[in-house]
């Protein structure tokens, strides 16, 4: 009888331990899944951040567009002369063909 009682205790405790371990396993795999799911969101946020930085870069540039049509894209700002372009007077310091 005594042996049976101990066997019941051991089986009971073992069951509880196994169940807890099982729950932990499920929980951690869910967390992994969440992490995986959150990766695209993180990438999208990073892209948005890059876009914001780009916009800030553009805004921070104190433009004077004059007689140009301006097209903005992520990679490049394209300025097309509206008509006969009126050049600027030469500056004291100039970068030129070398």
């Amino acid at each position: 009888m005594k042996t049976n009682k101990w066997v019941k205790w051991v089986a009971g405790l073992g069951g509880v331990t196994l169940f807890t371990a099982f729950l932990q396993l499920v929980d951690s795999s869910e967390m992994d899944q969440q992490k995986t799911n959150s990766s695209p969101t993180a990438t999208a946020e990073k892209n948005n951040e890059t876009m914001r930085q780009r916009e800030q870069e553009l805004m921070s540039l104190d433009w004077n567009e004059g007689n140009w049509d301006v097209q903005y894209s992520n990679e490049v700002i394209t300025l097309t002369p509206k008509g006969q372009s009126s050049g600027l007077p030469p500056s004291e310091n100039r970068t030129r063909r070398s």
Partner: peptide, 18 residues
């Protein structure tokens, strides 16, 4: 006669006049 400017120009330049 078009000008193509990279936005990264703002890393170097404070003001640009065209």
């Amino acid at each position: 006669g078009q000008l193509l400017i990279t936005p990264s120009v703002s890393r170097y330049v404070e003001r640009l006049v065209v």
